[in-house]
Amino acid sequence: MASQGTKRSYEQMETDGERQNATEIRASVGKMIGGIGRFYIQMCTELKLSDYEGRLIQNSLTIERMVLSAFDERRNKYLEEHPSAGKDPKKTGGPIYRRVNGKWMRELILYDKEEIRRIWRQANNGDDATAGLTHMMIWHSNLNDATYQRTRALVRTGMDPRMCSLMQGSTLPRRSGAAGAAVKGVGTMVMELVRMIKRGINDRNFWRGENGRKTRIAYERMCNILKGKFQTAAQKAMMDQVRESRNPGNAEFEDLTFLARSALILRGSVAHKSCLPACVYGPAVASGYDFEREGYSLVGIDPFRLLQNSQVYSLIRPNENPAHKSQLVWMACHSAAFEDLRVLSFIKGTKVLPRGKLSTRGVQIASNENMETMESSTLELRSRYWAIRTRSGGNTNQQRASAGQISIQPTFSVQRNLPFDRTTIMAAFNGNTEGRTSDMRTEIIRMMESARPEDVSFQGRGVFELSDEKAASPIVPSFDMSNEGSYFFGDNAEEYDN
């Protein structure tokens, strides 16, 4: 783990906690998980779902989305002020799938948001429990990260689609708070800032007046979040320049895209947490497990152990491969979309394939898809080993990566060399080191050039047997250095459309 220093740990961010010791953190995270579980059980009762239907990941996603929508204050306010045809701002819903006479049927349900809020609060001892809501947002974000390569979004903001390893959390809503900021990748933060800068260039009043003052505060806050992700002084200094700019424009845009590229080699610290679907927490609570009393951590053995003992089902389209669908969801559960496939294969105990080789589309089923041909199958979400999630980018030494994705962002704290394609990355730096950030740029390029592919990161860190909950005997895996390590390699994943 990167030293926490003055930073709060993510469990504290996750639970809005002030400084807590490890036991208190485990208890408050457990409380959050228990609340999600209780809410899910109650919703299944309301909807009269069978046990099997309640364990269907598509039903879980609909129920999670309903509660997130019920608590989305800004959108609710907007919907009330701008009524649109056929949208009731006070209601929320989605597809629920039921097994009827041996076939899967889709039923569109509609609930009062007020009623959903009441059920959620009741499951969370009367609190709004925003930490639990954020947790579900991060699960949705991790699922998107594993399912889609955001080529269009990258290109629109002047970045290269091969930089997708920097895009963790790119679909997280803005209201996801400190826990959300911690899991956002460098590219995601750059993209958010670039969008602001572009608006400022096109709209003279963007930075002016009372609204402009708020915009400015948001801009500086985002700059500080991004600065905190960088691990070298030169990158941090460049972020200070971007933040202090009187009138952010093209120079800042250039600096930010430069920094994003540099992060492929001088990786930023991005938190990883295993956020599971509500249909995993519900049955665990129903079986009598007391998360608050037992304590829970999002970055240790607990999620692995929970998945070892969970039964989750998914709808499967006619030509999809259930094992591939399982891999997709497994990666999402562990926030591992940008991790090295060699490491993932070792931990999972079966070969993890790149996205383009998977015969599976996303987990969600569109409303126009034919239910007649839908089957369902068990998702295999178990693992051979477990490993500690990392909050750091690993040290800054790398190795060759593949054509589709030119770097990785480690999820697990496991000893290995970190793949990246130096030639491709360095070719993108057209040696432009003039301007006010020239000395920093020169320094950053120097550090990137001296990074050695064969150097090892996370020295001495290994994986653990599932029986080793105290992480007492690390097993340090050895990897084939020459092997392909990137998930979005030469990829044809669908595009994420909101």
Rank of each mutant, 00 (worst) to 15 (best):
N430M: 00
R121K: 15
L110A: 04
E449M: 10
T433R: 10
G37H: 13
I201A: 03
K325W: 08
T424S: 13
G431W: 10
D421C: 06
R150Y: 14
C279H: 00
T257D: 05
F458S: 08
R121D: 01
D302C: 04
L259K: 07
I33K: 05
Y78G: 03
E80C: 14
L61S: 12
P477N: 04
A428D: 00
A233Q: 07
N205I: 08
L172M: 06
G54R: 08
M136S: 07
A251W: 06
R106M: 10
P83E: 05
N368S: 13
G86C: 05
E495A: 08
R98N: 02
S297Q: 02
Q235T: 03
L110D: 08
S457V: 03
G490W: 07
N101H: 13
V329G: 01
T15D: 00
G209D: 11
T147I: 14
G404F: 00
E107F: 07
D51Y: 09
M13N: 00
E64K: 11
P89M: 02
V463A: 14
T378G: 00
V190T: 00
A179S: 12
E244P: 04
M167E: 09
E115P: 02
A401K: 02
N101W: 08
R355Y: 04
K470R: 13
R150S: 09
S50I: 14
I388Y: 11
N202D: 10
R216L: 04
I201Q: 15
G431T: 10
D439K: 07
W330S: 05
F489H: 04
F253G: 04
M374C: 12
M191A: 02
M159V: 11
N417K: 05
G490F: 05
Q12R: 09
R293V: 15
P322N: 01
T45N: 11
L306I: 15
E294A: 06
E372Q: 11
G288H: 05
V414D: 01
D455C: 02
T188I: 10
V312E: 08
L341N: 08
A146K: 05
G34N: 12
I57T: 08
R117Y: 14
A271D: 03
V242A: 04
A284K: 10
G485H: 01
F488T: 02
A131R: 00
L276Y: 09
